[in-house]
Simulated assay, not measured.
Amino acid sequence: MGKRRIGDRSDGTQIRDIDAMHYVMPLMYPNRCDNEAYMKVSVDITKTEDYIKKYNEEHPDNRIAIFDIIIAAMLKTLRLRPQMNRFIANQTMYQRNCITAAFTVKKEFRDDGDETLARIVAEDTDNLESISFKVREQIAKCKVEDDESTDAMNFIKRLPAKHVLGAVARYLDRHGWMPKSVIATDPYQCSVVLTNLGSLGMDIGYHHLMNWGTNSIFVIVGTKKFKPFYDKDGNVTMKRVIDLAVTLDERISDGFYYGRSLRLVQKLIENPELLEGALSKEI
């Protein structure tokens, strides 16, 4: 990352050589929630499940799950496809300075069980093994203590004049001036937010983006199921699949770039051995 210039933020570098269309779109359509594109990816996990079984037999103390592979695949795609790691704030487009993933952890599986927020920061040298370790570490931590953002929100909750506080917070957020203690584990300040509905036995839905924060990608992971696949002769084969529902900010890139990026995600999940190398390793 080069020297910070006027117009840059602490979490992103302003894109100055942007084409005219992507320069104008944030001016015409300033709200992220008004510019959502929805895409669905069906992933054949036949080989993936075989890989997980073999991996866990060989690493009984460091087991992995399919959610780990999906997170690693998203992070590697963000590393190799940099437009996927951009965001728009205050009608300006930025390249994010780091690659992060966030997900919610339910402390107890009860209706009144508390939720807390987990956040993973990816390094170029990370691979599936290290990312899986970070996921396990975050889940274990979240089960026993609150995250920094939750602590900050609990403090804010006790303050008066909530509407004034809200207006100030939105202004600070728009300019990238929110205190780090408040947004330390805020999922909507991350590259990608993931939620694993499959772990609850639920199929995919679609989740909206937020005007708050900088997050431009939301991924819902559905339940595993069998689905028919047809070859060119019309023969049917039932395959084990998992569906991903992806919400994107369409102002950032075009459908061709997004489509190729999601095909890369699909390829990485279907061939998890490609995730054994560093995130920065080209595919």
Rank of each mutant, 00 (worst) to 15 (best):
A245N: 07
D50V: 08
L197A: 08
E58P: 07
Y51W: 05
N271L: 06
S199F: 07
F133N: 13
S132G: 15
F87W: 03
Y258T: 14
D44S: 13
I88F: 02
T185M: 00
H207W: 09
F155P: 01
P228F: 04
K232Y: 03
I269W: 06
I131E: 02
L264V: 11
D11K: 00
D254L: 12
M39C: 05
M84V: 12
Y94M: 12
Y258V: 13
L264Q: 15
R4Y: 02
Y206H: 07
A167N: 10
R81G: 04
A20N: 15
L172I: 08
M74G: 08
G277Q: 14
G198D: 04
I71C: 02
L244R: 14
L275R: 09
I204W: 04
D124C: 11
G113H: 06
K232E: 14
I217D: 05
D146Q: 00
S130T: 15
S132Q: 07
N56E: 11
I131M: 03
V219D: 02
V246A: 02
I156A: 10
S149E: 00
Y23C: 05
P60Y: 05
F226I: 15
G201C: 12
V246Y: 01
I70N: 02
H22F: 11
R240L: 06
Y258P: 02
I139K: 12
E270S: 15
I66S: 04
R251Q: 05
D233N: 14
P60W: 07
G166M: 10
A73H: 10
R86P: 04
T77I: 08
Y29F: 13
D146R: 01
L248A: 09
C33T: 14
S261I: 10
R79T: 12
D34N: 10
Y258G: 03
Y94Q: 05
G113E: 03
M238N: 12
D147L: 00
E36A: 09
Y55N: 09
N56G: 13
T237V: 14
S130I: 12
P179I: 13
L159Y: 05
L200N: 12
D8S: 08
H59D: 05
R240A: 05
I156V: 10
H163M: 04
F103K: 05
L27D: 07
V41A: 09
G259Y: 07
G234I: 11
V43D: 03
L244Y: 09
G213L: 04
W177M: 12
T223Y: 02
G205H: 08
T116S: 00
E57S: 14
Q189W: 03
S261N: 07
S42I: 13
K106V: 03
S42F: 08
G222I: 13
R110I: 07
A161W: 10
V192Q: 05
P187Q: 03
V41Y: 06
I99D: 03
T104A: 05
R86N: 11
D68W: 04
G2H: 01
A89R: 13
H163P: 01
E276K: 15
S132D: 10
L80V: 10
L159K: 07
K107H: 00
L172N: 13
V168Y: 01
C190L: 03
E282T: 14
P26A: 06
L275K: 09
M1E: 08
I120M: 02
P26N: 06
V24D: 00
I139Y: 03
T116F: 00
G198F: 07
E145L: 00
E137Q: 12
H175W: 07
K180F: 00
A102E: 06
N154T: 00
N56K: 15
Q189P: 01
N154R: 00
Q83K: 15
